[in-house]
Design a protein around this nucleic acid. Sequence first.
RNA 1: GCGGGCAUAGUAUAGUGGUAAUACGUGAGCUUCCCAAGCUUGAAUCGUCGGUUCGAUCCCGUCUGCCCGCACCA
Length: 499
Amino acid sequence: MSTELTMETLTSLLKRRGFVYPASEIYGGINGFYDYGPLGVELRQNIKNVWWKEMVHQRDDVVGLDSTIIQSAKVWKASGHLDNFTDPLVDCKESKMRYRADQLFFANVQVDGNSIGYVSAQECADTEAELVKKALELKRKAGVQGELDSLEIKEFTEATEDEVALVPSPATGKPGSLTPPRAFNMMFQTYVGALANDSSKTYLRPETAQGIFTNFKNVVDSTRVKLPFGIAQIGKAFRNEITPRNFIFRSREFEQMEIEYFIPGDDDIWPKMHREWIDNCLEWLHGIGIPKDRLGEDVHPKEKLSHYSRATTDITFDFPFGRQELWGIAARGNFDLTQHQEHSGKTLEYFDEARKERYIPHVIEPSVGVDRTLLAVLCSAYSEDEIGGEKRTLMRFHPKIAPITAAVFPLVKNKPELVELTKKLHRKLQRRWNVFYDQSGAIGRRYRRMDEVGTPFCITVDFDSLEDGTFTVRDRDTTEQKRMTEAEIIAHIDDRING
RNA sequence: GCGGGCAUAGUAUAGUGGUAAUACGUGAGCUUCCCAAGCUUGAAUCGUCGGUUCGAUCCCGUCUGCCCGCACCA
């Protein structure tokens, strides 16, 4: 009985039960950052561990890597991030349009040497023709006779203060609504060493992928991998988003789980590999408890692809705030390795023994955010039902990612022999899983506490346990109870986790 | 970044120019033989800074954060 979930309901539960808190909260918070509490960190670790286990350990063709957050600034120059992130932007205050200043052009319109105003246009197939068209229009409206002088076209990055005030917005045609160009650098900047100058300047990585590319040769030379093979990495990345929104969906500090899967460049290979990875990723998401009917595929249209990308498919999830990207699976060609080979001057070619051929491999790049996955898991797990007329809130986490795997309770707390036996059982089960002990409150209350944090198994020790060594195992989703011995409990939980 | 709304315990909310409350939750104790029972008792709140005022949680301004639109999201 899942109910329409709002983000308000979810975030208050996550705060109340210790999953997610706003970062720096006692100082008023900091926009775009979130901290994970005692239960959040467990869930997060479990998601990462399952991913690593299934994407790295259980495959023979993927190896792991952990590269640094801060790397040489040259890495970001080569990858293109530096140039793409430092472009100044211009806002039109009236139409709310935003332009890249280096793609916005303007010209002073003069008739027989006399200025009659300015025209502007966004970069297009024939920007000059567009500007001339607008200039003639301006001349006609102004009712000025005479010959239009040839236009001196300038980039908006070169606009003087006076010109900024006079150049019309391409959207509205009216002057005065454009802001001066402002730099929006999406990369967090920092300095390495004691001196803060241009040569010590570098950036926190905006994606983990580049650390994989820069270590490609190291991995090939040290591990006997053969194409096709992948390098996987889980790690933090940082983007100074203009507007972080939607809770942990788009934050400024986040964690990615990425694989660069290296393949030969042949045209008939990548589409097949691309499709295999999409299916593989969908299957993984389903395996951690995300229902297939909330997942979708968004194929990027050709004209929207980056020039180096051959195809990109996003796996989407239906969040309470809409259908959004969860996992991008890109066929990136060999752009990145080629860039790093050019900029570093080191060969990043791979020698294919089977083919007796040397080439720069292409890649399939499945890239997913830990925090987005966690949010999708939370949204999927949340549900409400009724037990004996009472409303119940529960998180239906898959047992393999539940923050607490099992809880143990003495039926009553004022009988020392029950408490003692329960604690003994607790210590034994803790060796395998995160197991929680609780003796406070009526047994029903303790069950509900565990329901709300998604603990799949509750084990109650009663007076029969003292006699026959069996315990009541209560199932979170069905509330059904079964008596089992300790050995049976271990087998049962193992089975539910792996089954 | 723009426009609008909001900010009171852990959560959800009430309320007041003379420093505050209800519910749930939570600590301690009693009770309790399986689904938020009961009793006793405790802790805990007006986002920040400034102004007006004898006095501000309340009025005004600033900042910060949150929500909704727009724009942005290599």
